[in-house]
Design a protein around this nucleic acid. Structure first.
Lengths: 354, 354
DNA sequence: CCTTAGCACTCCTGGAGGGAGAGTGCTAAG
DNA sequence: CTTAGCACTCTCCCTCCAGGAGTGCTAAGG
């Protein structure tokens, strides 16, 4: 799916220089000149030599110049080479580890809250915009189904899954349906559906049930429709987002119009879903993948980079965690943090799954 | 609570000029000159006369000049006079009405969703930032309390209120507690608490219950703690916000740093609560109230204005709806929309309350 | 006494010009 | 192949200047 990059061979010195330019640019945000590279990163050669090398790197497509006689900055391809071959992941500081672990130590509330707090901490720790795709419920088993009468004509349908997620809907019911009848319906449903996973409860099963309870046609149709909705909870509701104000600190977003475009796009949750889910399944071994600037499909994020890591519960991928930042983001750190978070998130979620 | 404004008496012509300046400034965002007023708003006098009047209005504190030889723009006091005496509420267009009604026609989901959608539509219709305080649950009766076993050692506590709100928590329970015991506990709880409103279920009642079930000390302590949390659900969770990107279209927020300060502040939900709840109870008849720029307590919103309307269910105030925009906001329209929305929101909620 | 035309004045704005600074590419020497 | 030297280019920032908008004042007119 993703474009295969054909990298030119770079000798050791070119690699060092490329790395120096990228890391300097990442930390300062200013185009990097040959003098700076020679001074800060001691390569034992003069600025003039570095200039020659940098000219080569530009010709090979790894660096760009905003204009003649400015320093160089990395192109998308340069960043790509960097994250694929040069980058190192730093160890997380104790402070970071402490902040992250804190989430998982006191998780008395349900999965939703867990994921939401994860998103917030991720944003706080990294200073980027955090995106998290909550685990899909499709493969979890139904623990209980209940219909609780509220007022004449209204009842509440509750679906509780094995791992403590509660979905509820208000139903319009025939006003003459009394409490004991509702309880009976509740009971029959629960008997048939309990233990099945949400994706096993197909329309077919529902229809079978329907025939068994032909007395309550209208009600059943309604319930079925709602259950089907609950079964495949819209993606929108599974996306969590935090730290939008973080990226406003980045000089690349000094322009409000750019910012508005980006944030408006992120308000559309399906878009975020495809952003997180779209890439990266090609390489099973890669547990973190990175999408750099223009590699992105969505024009709205074409000058952002995205670091995404899936998290698993059992064997299957359950959801994804992402960090969105400027192209000039600290990839190494972002990777370390997402890795750490996904590991511990997966661990904690597994406890919920039993 | 709020500062009493002492307005100087303004004759008819001054009022017209003040109104003209304010309305022009609201629609253009540019300081308004005497020439413009004379031309666009036909008052039958020359620019020179208007200049004299505007100088008076400035001296009285209703207008300001960004610098000598720029046009005038309204001061906070000017806006205050405008909203108190000059402003008219436009009728909503059919399109607006249609968009708002659409929310309430298909509200199959619960209150939370209803409030959330309300917030979104409010933002869309007005192009401002919408803030909604969801109804407090304190005075609603508990319909059902259930404990559903999940896995050994874990159970889900469900509290369902009369109007269909579901609060749930995952509990750690002694692993040797089996399903039937949990069901029994569930039953006793439900028997005692059903029909009581959340604020009636005081710790005292809980403690009485505790003595009746002394076998399960540890579990009870846990449940009590969690119930008390559920009783007074933190304010944070009751605040809904939408349309943050709308205000980025306003020229007064071209500055990213200003924007970041504002949005960071709004991320703190308690702050939003005090913002919405802090003002306005002094005048019972006033159903919409307006806080203009510097009248605001929070420095972060000191160059925004806020239009707030409470909505009632039955007699009591249930929550509040607010629109946050630049000082230069279309107050009339904002008032019309919030009024319309609160009316219909209250109506729909009342159906939920029975 | 209020209104208005005329006019000088103030201040912002945008564009032009110019020097400083940073960094490059080229050339020629080591 | 490396490096010093140097001319060149481009941005950035400052200043300067004219244009425009709007005011305040004054004096004349109703």
């Amino acid at each position: 799916m993703e474009a295969q990059h054909s990298f030119s061979w770079l000798d050791e010195r070119k690699r060092s220089i490329l790395q120096a330019v990228i890391e300097d640019f990442i930390s300062t945000g200013e185009p990097v000149g040959s003098r700076t590279v020679a001074r800060k990163y001691e390569l034992g050669v003069s600025p003039a030599t570095i200039r020659n090398e940098m000219a080569d790197l530009e010709e090979l497509g790894y660096l760009e110049q905003p204009h003649t006689s400015a320093g160089r900055l990395p192109s998308d391809l340069g960043y790509r080479y960097y994250v694929d071959y040069l980058m190192e992941h730093p160890r997380l500081s104790n402070d970071d580890i402490w902040r992250i672990r804190q989430i998982y130590d006191r998780c008395t509330r349900g999965i939703e809250t867990l994921v939401q707090i994860t998103t917030q901490v991720l944003a706080e720790v990294t200073d980027y915009l955090a995106l998290v795709l909550a685990p899909s419920l499709l493969s979890t088993a139904v623990r209980a189904i209940q219909i609780i009468p509220l007022s004449p004509g209204q009842a509440l349908l509750l679906v509780v899954t094995e791992n403590g997620i509660v979905e509820s809907r208000v139903l319009q019911v025939p006003p003459d349906l009394d409490e004991s009848e509702l309880a009976r319906i509740s009971y029959v449903w629960q008997k048939h559906l309990r233990g099945l996973s949400l994706d096993q409860i197909s329309s077919a099963v529902l229809r079978m049930l329907a025939s068994e309870m032909s007395g309550y046609r209208a009600l059943l149709d309604q319930i079925m429709e709602l259950l089907e909705q609950a079964l495949s909870p819209s993606d929108e509701e599974r996306v969590f987002l935090a730290g939008a104000t973080n990226i406003m600190r980045q000089p690349e977003f000094r322009d409000v119009e750019k910012l508005r475009m980006l944030l408006s796009a992120l308000e559309q949750r399906e878009m975020v879903c495809t952003l997180l889910a779209g890439h990266g399944s090609q390489d099973q071994n890669m547990d973190v993948f990175i999408v750099i600037g223009g590699e992105n499909r969505h024009p709205a994020v074409r000058d952002c980079s995205l670091v995404v890591a899936p998290y698993r519960v059992g064997e299957a991928e359950a959801g994804r965690v992402g960090l969105l930042g400027p192209r000039r983001m600290e990839y190494g750190r972002a990777v370390s943090v997402t890795e750490y978070v996904t590991t511990h998130l997966a661990e904690t979620l597994t406890r919920f799954w039993k």
